[in-house]
Structure formats: C-alpha cells, structure tokens
C-alpha cells in the first residue's frame, strides 16, 4: 500500500522501502475518447544541485534527452496519446548511481502544447503520476492529476532528495504556469 502523501508531506524512502536503490516514476492517463487533439502528457526529471539548479543542460531528462550523462536516469520514451495499459510513460532513476553533487531530483509532469491545444489535467481522464520502488514495483506515492490538479497544465509532482545517507521524497503538488519551457528555465536550463 502506497503512502498517501498530502501536498507538502514527505516520507523517508529508505525507511518505507528499506534497501531502495532505484525508483520508477510512472505517468498514466486514458487516451482522449472525444473528438479533438490528443492529450500528450510528458514526464520530466531534473537533477539539481544544492542550489536547486541543474549542473548542466544534460541534467534535464525528457523525451528529447532520454538519459543523463552518467546514465543514472533513463526516460523510457514518449507516449503521445495515452494509448495502452498501465503507465504510459516511465522514467527510471538509479539512486545509487546519482552523482554526489546532485542533491535533489525534481519530478515533473506537463501537458504538451497545453496552451495552443487549450488543455489542462482536468480534461484528461484518469491522469496520475506515481513513484514506485523499481525492485518489485511497489507504489510509494501517487498524485491524481485529473482530480487534484484539474486546471493546471504543468506540475512539480515531487522531489527525491538526500537527507544524510538516506533518500526522502516530498510530495510538492505545485502547479506551474506556462508549461515545460518556463519550468526548465526555472531550474536553470537554457531553453
């Protein structure tokens, strides 16, 4: 049973899931059943230093940059329609392999071209983002985007951060105006 985190709440991953060494971030939604442009949700990860910024642009892991330079983060690819069962997009983070100067990993979700398509999470059926223990797939935290983030188009779902030798997860659940590009700029990426 996943820990149900309310916005702002945090959990020690190392305590909840002893021996946790890698996480899978899952993003899922139902394909659009009505007429109109498809909903295309994108999962994105930013590797951040103690100052909350990327060390370089390659710390911005998304559908066009699927692997971090050190190989610790892998984006499994872009599903542009939500077609298929289970998670539509996944990103894997090998916590043990994350370089020491990365203090925090921000996990985000955005709707592709939300503004031009006039879309938000509430219009998408059964949209969620969740974090799982890669070993065994047990769910650690989940956010129901359709219900809780309904009028948002981009969101910082949460952050995985170092706490001494442990990793912790904080459910941020913070909507972010403007989509992926401003979000990336916020974290210091040149876009």
């Amino acid at each position: 049973m996943a820990v149900s985190l309310s916005k702002g709440g945090n959990v020690s991953l190392s305590k909840e899931a002893p021996g946790l060494s890698a996480i899978t971030i899952g993003l899922g939604w139902d394909p659009r059943a009505t007429d109109g442009q498809q909903f295309d949700l994108d999962g994105t990860v930013f590797l951040l230093n103690a100052g909350g910024k990327v060390r370089s642009d390659s710390d911005f892991i998304f559908y066009n940059n699927k692997t971090s330079s050190d190989g610790s983060v892998t984006h499994a690819g872009d599903n542009t329609t939500g077609q298929g069962d289970g998670d539509d997009e996944t990103v894997e983070v090998n916590l043990a392999g994350v370089p020491a100067d990365v203090d925090k990993i921000a996990v985000c979700v955005t709707i592709h071209e939300a503004d031009t398509r006039g879309q938000n999470f509430g219009q998408v059926s059964k949209a969620y983002i969740r974090i799982m223990n890669k070993a065994g797939g047990a769910e650690i935290a989940r956010y129901d985007l359709s219900e809780d983030a309904s009028t948002d188009t981009a969101m910082i779902f949460g952050e995985v951060y170092r706490n001494g030798a442990d990793w912790k997860f904080r459910a941020v659940g913070q909507g972010y105006a403007g989509g992926l590009a401003p979000l990336a700029r916020n974290f210091g990426v040149n876009v």
Partner: peptide, 8 residues
C-alpha cells in the same frame, strides 16, 4: 468555472 475544473 473554467473548462476541466473538478470541484466538490
């Protein structure tokens, strides 16, 4: 109300 809003 906006489109896509979900509210108790």
């Amino acid at each position: 109300l906006q489109a896509g809003q979900r509210v108790p």
